[in-house]
Design a protein around this nucleic acid. Structure first.
Lengths: 134, 134
DNA sequence: CAACAAATGCAACTAAGTTGCAAAGACAAA
DNA sequence: TTTGTCTTTGCAACTTAGTTGCATTTGTTG
């Protein structure tokens, strides 16, 4: 079991359970947004979907994870170490392969000076072609 | 019946039905993204939800309308006259009142020069406070 | 170890959106 | 105006991502 994972959980007042550590492990390995269903499959369905959803939600609340909206009605989750408080890196949904990619090699400012609004966070979604599909 | 609406439908090879014109009327009046359910209520449930969904989809295909993702699992639709081919205006979901507002008085560039990716369209979603909630 | 709170699994539920099909309606040609 | 064809509509049944209630199990602290 990973020591730092254990500490992360402790710091967020979350109990150190097998379910949580294995979900975090999978999110770490994935390195990109994945869905509840994908997590369940990688765990060979040894963890109940309710449990996965509930754990992902507690990770969300603790800020360890964020989620992006996929296609029609699914969320994909990923670790949030590449995100600042106000802005997560942009994502691209590829028109061809439909996969979601994280775009971390760009430098997009925070548009927080829009008259009349108080902008606290911004999410950017690109549509187009990923490197593999051009 | 609005003559321009009629022409818009004709140009998109869509038949001029009562359902379609009344949905377009409501979207025009709304001037912001609204959901299927909201449309149905404004029509006093005289139009079946299947019909509304199917018409919204044909509007989407024709480019007359675009949609933004709302809260948990709902889409909101709005007329796309304020959008360019590559970018729609940003939207803000207010942390307090949960309403979605269109932000049209800002000038955000298209980030289409990201190495490795072919960006065709960008969608920006802000979270924060709307003018009424500050 | 005991006691309590939190996490888990299961089954049933919710609800936004979809599908199949028969009936009604739009529209172009005659 | 009528006819014929293709599109649109309504209805009911369905799909499925995500949620809820509850009984059981597990982690943690003293």
């Amino acid at each position: 079991m990973n020591k730092s994972t254990e500490n992360i959980l402790k710091n967020s007042n979350l109990r150190n359970t097998h379910g949580r550590t294995s979900i975090l492990e999978i999110l770490t390995k994935a390195g990109k947004p994945i869905t509840q269903e994908q997590i369940a499959v990688k765990l060979k369905k040894t963890l109940n979907k309710t449990t996965i959803y509930r754990n992902l939600e507690s990770f969300l609340k603790a800020g360890m994870v964020h989620r992006v909206f996929l296609n029609q009605r699914m969320w994909a989750y990923e670790l949030s170490h590449n995100c600042t408080e106000n802005q997560c890196h942009p994502h691209l949904i590829c028109r061809k392969c439909k996969k979601t990619t994280c775009i971390t090699n760009c430098n997009i400012p925070l548009f927080d000076n829009i008259p009349g609004f108080k902008i606290e966070r911004q999410k950017i979604l690109f549509e187009g072609l990923c490197p593999g599909c051009q």
